[in-house]
Computed example of a mutant assay.
Amino acid sequence: MLTWLKRDELIFPPLDKALREPNGLLAAGGDLSADRLIQAYRHGCFPWYQDGQPILWWSPDPRTVLFPAELHVSRSLRKLMRQGRYQVTFDRDFAAVIHACAGPRAYADGTWITDNMQAAYLELHRRGFAHSVEVWDQGSLVGGLYGLAMGQLFFGESMFSRADNASKIGFASLVERLQAGGVVLIDCQMPTDHLISLGARSIARQEFAAFLSRHLDQPDTTDWQS
């Protein structure tokens, strides 16, 4: 039975209560307050829903993750990064990145990054939890991604690309910086061909929860300055 969250409580059900079909649906309801979102990620779930739906909270099994040391950068992508065609910055324009991620996609109708979601993650950015990566081409924003940093973990949310390989360069640059800061795991939530090509793989939800327990409260020394 699906759990409905109360607005005055920040408690989520145990992860093993998530449904098998649809895979990982854990709870519904509640709100998108910063405190609830922080608790959700610490618990191992994330919001994902469309306009007109209640807020839905998910914890899929298995979970798609990337271990920084397993990042795969193709020879051609590495060459493009060395050429310096694109400039990569961090936390330069979070609002522009999340707005671009919410834009229309050729393969999907509508967006799950609603206006309310954008406002919620902008608040998390103001609180120092949410961060962005921007990829620029001669001053124009052509790619990027955003997510949350907590302890030695990074929870990726969404990325976009308006130029060839822009999002891959942004992601690879992020992984290298996170690894230098001591981050041990990047949560990618669900598998895509794009992420798998970069080295992402699936682990059991129970194993993912163990990483949360061990690393959420460890110090993160990632440099978020551009």
Rank of each mutant, 00 (worst) to 15 (best):
F67P: 12
A180Y: 02
A119N: 03
L32G: 03
G147Y: 01
L145M: 09
A172P: 14
L56C: 15
A102K: 04
L56T: 15
M81H: 12
N116M: 03
S132A: 07
D193E: 07
R162P: 00
P13T: 14
D193A: 14
V97F: 05
K6P: 04
A106L: 02
I169F: 02
A166H: 10
G128D: 01
L153D: 13
W57F: 04
D220S: 15
A28N: 07
V65Y: 06
R75Y: 13
A96C: 05
P62F: 00
L71A: 06
Y107K: 15
R105Y: 04
L216W: 01
P47E: 08
S167Y: 09
A96E: 07
P68G: 05
R92I: 01
A27C: 07
Y86R: 07
E21F: 08
Q39M: 15
G170S: 01
V142G: 05
L71H: 06
G110W: 04
P47I: 10
F67R: 14
D93V: 11
Q189L: 09
Y41E: 01
D109L: 14
E157G: 08
A95D: 15
T89F: 14
V88W: 09
L77K: 09
G29H: 06
V133C: 09
L25V: 15
R42D: 02
H194R: 09
P54L: 00
E9R: 13
A210W: 12
F94E: 06
P13D: 14
E207G: 03
A180V: 11
P62R: 02
D91I: 03
G144L: 00
V183G: 10
Y146F: 13
G139L: 08
D35L: 08
R127I: 02
L148C: 02
A149E: 04
S213G: 03
G30I: 06
H72V: 14
R214C: 03
S76H: 06
E207P: 03
W48D: 10
L174W: 04
S173I: 12
G156Y: 02
G156C: 02
R162I: 01
A95T: 14
A69R: 00
L122E: 14
G52H: 08
S197H: 13
E176Y: 01
G110D: 13
E134Q: 12
R162A: 00
A27W: 09
T114H: 09
A209N: 11
P104H: 02
W4H: 00
D61N: 12
R92F: 02
P60F: 00
V142E: 05
L32E: 00
N165T: 15
H72L: 10
W136G: 12
M159T: 09
C188R: 13
L148D: 04
Q87I: 15
R201F: 10
